[in-house]
Simulated scan of single mutants.
Amino acid sequence: MDLALLTTLNAERAARRATVLITHLSSGAQHLLRASEIATDPLAPQLEAALRAGKSGVVGEGDGRVFLTVHVPPPRVVVIGAVHISQALAPMARLAGYDVTIVDPRTAFATAERFPDTTVIAEWPDTALPDLALDPFTALVALTHDPKIDEPALEAALLADCFYVGALGSRRTHAKRLDRLADRGLSPALLGRIHAPIGLDIGAANPPEIAVAVLGEVIAALRKPAPAREAAA
């Protein structure tokens, strides 16, 4: 790999932007594609599948065979609310390979004792989220039921194009939430990205089961193409 290509790759990785290094096996020629450039590439379906899976490999045939070296940031889950569901979700998400951060301004709940081995930020989302730099490889899960805490976080996640945005609450609660978020200037298209009621419909009846449902929905949002997610909903 030449120095200019390596410099660009390192800069993209430092900025938590996904890239694919394409190596032509017949010639050894290489070029780098950013995620934003993939849609117009002839190999777009294979490139998109490789990014979703986070796996490198060979695609194409004959002289057109190329090796795709996939570079994706580690996926993260930012949980708004240091609640019982969060206590179950945090270790599950870590086992699944996600970095986990808990954000909750309520210092009685947001403690290291309640969330061992997990980053806990006892701040309001307005204060905490800018430093976390939400991005398309971040899932945001809002669980407090408190509009003052959840809704600024939901807005930030939608504007940052987080790959998953979910919020706890009934359909009636969510309808009122959508009205308030619309009043903040968010478009119907953005608001339609919120998963609510949160989690896969598995009949979850307690906090650990709800955590399983939420994590399953997060994984599906990361790994499945949009049409497949919609068909499974």
Rank of each mutant, 00 (worst) to 15 (best):
S26M: 08
R106N: 10
L143R: 11
A228K: 13
A29K: 15
A35L: 09
L154H: 01
R13F: 04
I202R: 05
P73D: 07
V66M: 13
A110I: 01
N10P: 02
V141R: 01
A211V: 08
V79T: 01
R180V: 13
F163H: 07
I219D: 10
Y164A: 02
T127F: 05
L95G: 07
A182D: 03
V120S: 04
S26G: 12
L154R: 01
C162K: 06
A156D: 02
A90R: 08
A122I: 02
P73Q: 06
P208D: 06
S26P: 05
P188A: 02
A128N: 02
A175Y: 06
V79I: 15
V72L: 08
N206F: 12
G60I: 06
L51W: 08
K55C: 09
P116L: 09
H31F: 15
A93F: 01
K55I: 12
A221D: 05
D41T: 04
A44P: 00
T138G: 04
G60H: 08
L33V: 10
V214H: 11
G203L: 06
F67Q: 05
A211F: 08
V103G: 01
L190I: 00
H24L: 12
V78M: 08
L5M: 11
M1E: 13
G203E: 03
R34F: 07
P105Q: 09
T40W: 02
A196E: 05
R34A: 14
G192L: 03
A82T: 00
V79E: 00
M1A: 15
R172D: 11
A226D: 13
L190W: 03
V214G: 08
E151W: 09
N206S: 15
P227E: 03
I102W: 09
R184H: 13
A233Y: 07
A153K: 01
G166V: 09
G203H: 04
H84F: 11
T101R: 04
L191D: 06
V165I: 08
